[in-house]
Amino acid sequence: MGMPLAMVGAHEKVRVKSIVGGYGIMKRLSDMGIYEGTTLEVVRNDSTGPLILKVLDSRIVIGRGQAQKIMVEMK
């Protein structure tokens, strides 16, 4: 089963299953390389505050609220 990205620990690789969000944020995320079906790695998750992800070759900061809305599964 999927779980929210916000709950994934550092160094875990996950696959995005679904994203809940409005038109704007979906686009912004896919521009950054985060869309249904992509694989990404959590670089940092301090259990409060934003997360750092490794997506493609870049590091992306994502707010915790948004990370709650991205459902992922472990790779």
Binding site: G21, G24, I25, R28, L29, M32, P50, I52, S58, R59, I60, V61, I62, G63, G65, Q66
Partner: peptide, 10 residues
């Protein structure tokens, strides 16, 4: 507020 998504440049 807008969701926080930002690139961390190297």
């Amino acid at each position: 507020s807008a969701p926080f998504v930002m690139e961390l440049p190297p």
